[in-house]
Write a protein that binds this DNA or RNA. Structure first.
Length: 478
RNA sequence: CGGGGUGUAGCGCAGUUGGUAGCGCGCUUGCUUUGGGAGCAAGAUGUCGGGUGUUCGAGUCACCUCACUCCGACCA
């Protein structure tokens, strides 16, 4: 592949300034627009369409694993939020409060949900009475509010869209299984549909969700070497049930506290897609979530029959993919650049010469490969190519992650990597919080997760030299 | 929340010692073009982020505030 020429002058190159590249892409691809409230963004039609595709796929995966959708209110009375100690301590610093209804001051202030564990608990206490009522496998698609200090489109906004699954079970084992099941659903979704490789693992106590016994995570590596937590699944044990007094009569005719889980994915995934697959020409979208999978660009559109042929192809393909034809009078070159910037996976060019030969030109967004395809083979070729783009994106991301994953066995080595090589660092850990804090302070990195796939890199902790318990992934995170 | 930077037309920017608010791109109309961001001609577009103050006069000076952005601390 010849060296790619940078054509979109408006986008800052990644090497020059990755943060600026990101915001340029987000704005120029028309994913969001800022509003007058800090950290609150308009998700524009093209950005929202990506989210809708994510929703459709994930929602069907939830349904396939037996979950039902519900909808909780957006307000939580202060007294309700306060019921579980760790949970409130975790979230209180970043909740938004409603203090007035009209001009009347409220008796008790209400927080705008930062997450809905407390609401689900209140509800479960009302509807769970017997082991026959269990399990409840619920999910909701809503927005939540966290009053963040520093904000970035998709990655950290004050209001964001997400799904939060909340389940309640008879036994700890069942709840634990559910936690892992949903983590696996998330990992499959990221890898298969977003073409984004992830590391599955469990968080250390320090990084655990407020109120959880265990927090599982999938961690992805972005283009700039920073890690992004892309989905989490929590096991709560019966801690919330005790705090909220949720009790059921068991098979043994005794009262028991049930066991709970919660799990969530957010619009942050869109940020993950941008920073995993994007390049200096703009967005690169995995076909499964691309609002438009194939853009038809008529060439020499003024010539007899070209527009008609473009429209004919659009109709022919509309049954097998999300396709659009750009029949505007912008130049062909302008359209090429425009749809590359918007990350459309396949471009189909059709001009007078092609029509003569009963063919078209298809160009892949991920590697710019140009292919001549007979119009008779389009219906079989397009799905193949979309799949090939997915595979291309996944493999490229996997390769990059491999290149950016390093191993450290002592502190000097670890600091050197942390300072000079962006990416994941694999290192052994003794299990002590102090070592975690020390690595944060001295090397500026945090533990991302204890991966399920363990490897014995050394006998001793990278930090203190005591016997090691686990291999961890470390890194700088978003 | 601490430190830095930036807010002037849709976008990118200029605006001198305070004195009638500009340029490029885009946009509109017309003609010519059309296989990698086309050319020419004519035209439209501004509470200078918001507020208060200083002044005969503020885009420009002072103070306050809001937003964006980067670096830290905190978090999906």
């Amino acid at each position: 592949m010849a060296q790619q020429k940078k054509m979109v002058e408006e986008i800052t190159s990644m090497d020059e300034d990755f943060a600026k590249w990101y915001t340029d892409v987000v704005k120029k691809a028309e994913l969001i627009e800022y509003t007058s409230v800090k950290g609150c963004m308009v998700i524009r039609p093209y950005g929202y369409a990506i989210w809708e595709n994510i929703q459709h796929i994930l929602d069907s995966m939830f349904k396939a694993t037996g979950h039902e959708n519900v909808c909780m209110p957006m307000f939580i009375p202060e007294s309700l939020l306060n019921k579980e100690k760790d949970h409130v301590e975790g979230f209180a610093p970043e909740v938004a409060w409603v203090t007035h209804g009209g001009s009347e001051k409220l008796e008790e202030r209400l927080c705008v949900r930062p997450t809905s564990e407390t609401l689900f608990c209140e509800h479960y206490a009302n509807v769970v009475h017997s082991y026959r009522d269990l399990p409840k496998l619920y999910n909701q698609w809503v927005s939540v509010v966290r009053w963040e200090k520093t904000t970035r489109p998709f990655l950290r906004s004050r209001e964001f869209l997400w799904q939060e699954g909340h389940t309640i079970h008879e036994t700890a084992e069942e709840a634990q299984e559910e936690t892992i099941r949903m983590l696996n659903v998330y990992a499959e979704f990221c890898e298969k549909y977003l073409a984004m490789p992830v590391v599955k693992g469990v968080k250390t106590a320090k990084e655990r969700f407020a109120g959880a016994e265990d927090t599982y995570t999938i961690e992805a590596l972005m283009h700039d070497g920073k890690a992004l937590q892309s989905g989490t699944s929590h096991y709560f044990g019966d801690g919330f049930a005790k705090a909220f007094n949720i009790l059921y009569s068991g098979r043994d005719n005794q009262q028991h506290h049930p066991f709970q889980t919660s799990w969530g994915m957010t619009t942050r995934l869109i940020g993950a897609v941008i920073m995993t697959h994007g390049d200096d020409n703009g967005l690169v979208l995995p076909p499964a979530v691309a609002p438009t999978q194939v853009i038809i660009v008529p060439i020499a559109a003024h010539k007899e029959g070209v527009l008609e042929k473009a429209e004919e192809l659009r109709q022919k393909l509309s049954g097998i993919c999300r396709v659009k034809a750009d029949t505007s009078d912008n130049s062909a070159g302008w359209k090429f650049a425009e749809y590359e910037m918007k990350g459309v996976p396949l471009r189909l060019e059709i001009g007078p010469k092609d029509i003569e030969k009963n063919q078209c030109v298809i160009v892949r967004r991920d590697n710019r490969e140009k292919i001549f395809v007979s119009l008779d083979e389009l219906e079989t070729k397009i799905p193949e190519l979309l799949e090939a783009v997915r595979d291309g994106l996944y493999n490229k991301a996997l390769e990059r992650r491999a290149e950016m994953t390093f191993t450290a066995t002592d502190m000097a080595e670890l600091k050197d990597i942390a300072d000079n090589k962006p990416g994941f660092i694999r290192a052994m850990w003794c299990g002590d919080r102090e070592c975690e804090d020390k690595l944060k302070e001295e090397a500026g990195i945090t533990s991302r997760c204890i991966p399920f796939e363990q490897e014995h890199l050394a006998d001793t902790c990278v930090c203190c030299g005591k016997p090691a318990k686990h291999m961890l992934y470390w890194g700088k995170a978003y």
